[in-house]
Amino acid sequence: MIQSPPHSRFEAVDALRGLAMVWMTLFHFSFDLTQFGYSKQNFYSDPFWTWQRALIVSLFLFCAGIGQAIAVAQGQSWARFGRRWGRVLICALLVTVGSWLMYPQSFIYFGVLHGMALMLVIARLTTHWGGRLWLAGALAIALKFIAVYAMSTWATDHLIDIFNAPALNWLGFITRLPITEDYVPLLPWLGVMWWGVATGHWLVKQPAWRWSQPVPKALKPLAILGRWSLSYYMLHQPVLIGGLMALGWLARF
């Protein structure tokens, strides 16, 4: 295990996570504007939006991987990991319930928090792979596309339907996207988190002065936001949606 000060924080990583949260907020606000009829955008097929979503999820999972590597390097126990993991799982279940109330036909059953809960366990169990995680991540990303090609080319319709069904589509071996408001399957996204873990391993091997420096004052708000990312994630959409509902109510008077 690589030793680093037990209570040290990588403020640059916090700021990077905070950037992901701000970007996500802007994306969700744009999505909400469309849902409430204030704009007309296609978030499901327009590359401008689909690529943004992919990059936001990538940045989110990449930071989670870095954080997991740092936590292990600083001696995080399985008990402490379990407490943090439990919060992610509870929030994932709350997202499912909340999305079912709003979108019963396309509720979220395996979104970013559901995927993260599973990937964090895998990341924790494989953290000791170290630099080999770069290759593991590349293979995880490639396997997604190889498997989909193989299924589309050689698999029977029955087998394709099995992997496209909700019971197994969380693996990522799908030939069509499921009807859900958020979908982050194990593959290829585990590869992104593994790359984050590999980056975290590299960071903690560097001399302390390279990463222990505080971020510039202008980035402090991002670093603070990054430390509270899960709480912010759970609160930002209710606030945005509530604000737009209030705006619509006031516009009637």
Rank of each mutant, 00 (worst) to 15 (best):
L235M: 14
Q237Y: 09
H28S: 02
H236A: 03
Y233W: 01
R53D: 04
M234R: 01
Q105T: 09
C91L: 13
S30F: 08
A218P: 06
V72G: 10
W170Q: 04
M102S: 13
L203K: 05
G172T: 02
F62A: 05
M102N: 10
I162Q: 11
L125T: 02
L250H: 09
A54T: 14
Q3K: 15
F145T: 07
A246R: 10
A117I: 07
L219P: 03
G98F: 15
L171G: 07
F48A: 15
W23N: 05
Q105P: 00
F31M: 12
G226T: 01
F29N: 11
W209N: 08
R80S: 15
D46F: 02
W202L: 10
L219W: 12
W189Y: 10
I90E: 03
L33V: 03
K40D: 14
I108P: 04
F107Y: 15
S229Q: 00
V13I: 15
V192P: 01
M245V: 15
Q41K: 12
G67R: 05
M102W: 11
T153I: 00
D161A: 15
Q35M: 11
L133G: 01
M234V: 12
A142N: 07
L125Y: 02
G82P: 05
L219M: 14
G75N: 07
D157T: 14
A20R: 07
G196S: 09
Y44L: 12
I56V: 12
R176Y: 09
L186V: 11
T50G: 06
L101A: 15
F145Y: 15
T175E: 14
V13M: 10
K40N: 14
P214E: 03
Q76G: 10
L190Y: 08
A142R: 03
R87N: 09
M116H: 00
L61A: 01
L225V: 07
K220Q: 13
G172E: 04
R83H: 14
L240W: 06
R132E: 07
W228M: 08
Y44T: 12
Q237E: 11
M119G: 01
A165H: 13
E11V: 12
S77T: 15
I146L: 14
G67P: 04
T96V: 04
Q41R: 13
A123W: 00
M119R: 05
L159E: 00
P6R: 14
H201T: 14
T25L: 15
A165M: 03
M116T: 13
V112Y: 05
A142G: 12
G131V: 05
G115H: 03
V121F: 10
Y38K: 03
A140D: 13
F60C: 00
R9E: 11
P104G: 08
E181S: 13
E11P: 07
F145E: 09
V13R: 03
P207K: 10
T199N: 02
I122T: 01
V215I: 11
I108R: 08
